[in-house]
Structure formats: structure tokens, C-alpha cells
């Protein structure tokens, strides 16, 4: 069944025709060319595909594109204010070497931002470790990701984002 969908992605209104079975991540990657959102598993566990739908982190591999019809979607491409100015969480990952191969990174950053907001910008190592249950990284051993998110939380608070 082909359906038309329309949503706001990174502040731009986009639309397209998709099969009902099209996942949001497929719509983002294939229709919109927003390939920063990745697919790392097929059982909704790795979290490489995390985006924000109406401000809340979701796994875009476990959401139909048609379910996001009319929603406001933010992907990793929509975070930085400009090429020069990264989002404080992106900057914190860079500062703390919170990424290696980069594949899980977009999902990690998107999850981290939601996690930090949910905890009112006050996170501890323990909160972060527990809060990353839905994101798998194979490179970093999480040590620097955790450091980055704790630092990113303070930076987000300071920047008011």
C-alpha cells in the first residue's frame, strides 16, 4: 500500500510516497538522503538509528514512516547550528574522544541528548551507563562516551539547549 507522508525533518517540511511497510529510518536515509541515521541491527537493540520524534528519542527502525506523518523529526544532521558550531553534546563527544568508527555515534548522541533532558541536565556516571541500555558501541568500551555525556550535560545546561 503506497501512502503519502509529510513531516518536518530538521526544520524543513518534507513529503514523499512510501509503502506502508517503510520504516522511518528508510524514509530518512533513502527518500531524504539523510544517511547519518544508521541501521546496525534488526531487533531494535543497537540504537544506531535513534532520532527525535516530537522531541523524544525513538528508534527509527521500529517506527513506520507513516506513523511519523505530521511529526517533527530531528536527526543527527539537524543538531549543529552551523558547520562551525556543533551542538554541545556533539562537541563533548569530540572533546572526550567518545567515538571511534563513528557508526553508533549518531544514535548515541541523539539518545544522550534525550537522556540529559529527561534528567534535567543533572546526570551521573551511573545514570548515563544505565541510560545507554538501548545503544551498543563496539569500539569505545563506553568509557569515553560516558565521560562525554556527563560533560555534555553541563555544556547543554550552560548553553541553554
Amino acid at each position: 500500500m503506497t501512502m503519502s507522508v509529510s513531516m518536518s525533518v530538521n526544520g524543513k517540511t518534507v513529503s514523499g510516497n512510501v509503502e506502508a511497510r517503510t520504516l522511518l529510518v528508510q524514509f530518512l536515509r533513502e527518500n531524504l538522503g539523510l544517511t547519518g541515521t544508521h541501521v546496525g541491527c534488526d531487533t531494535s537493540q543497537c540504537g544506531a538509528c535513534v532520532v527525535h520524534v516530537d522531541g523524544i528519542s525513538v528508534k527509527s527502525c521500529t517506527l513506520l514512516a507513516v506513523q511519523a506523518d505530521g511529526a517533527k523529526v530531528t536527526t543527527i544532521e539537524g543538531l549543529a547550528k552551523s558547520a562551525e558550531q556543533l551542538h554541545p553534546m556533539q562537541e563533548a563527544f569530540r572533546e572526550n574522544h567518545g567515538l571511534q568508527c563513528g557508526f553508533c555515534t549518531p544514535g548515541m548522541v541523539m539518545s544522550a541528548i534525550d537522556l540529559v533532558k529527561r534528567h534535567n541536565y543533572e546526570v551521573t556516571e551511573e545514570i548515563v551507563r544505565h541510560g545507554l541500555e538501548g545503544n551498543i558501541c563496539r569500539c569505545t568500551g563506553y568509557h569515553n562516551i560516558v565521560k562525554a555525556i556527563v560533560a555534555g550535560a553541563s555544556a547543554m545546561k550552560a548553553a541553554g539547549v
Partner: peptide, 10 residues
């Protein structure tokens, strides 16, 4: 390499 990975431009 971080900038491109962090902005979804890998």
C-alpha cells in the same frame, strides 16, 4: 575525523 561522524556526514 570526528566532525563528519558527529554531524551525520560520514
Amino acid at each position: 575525523e570526528d566532525r563528519r561522524f558527529l554531524t551525520g556526514a560520514g
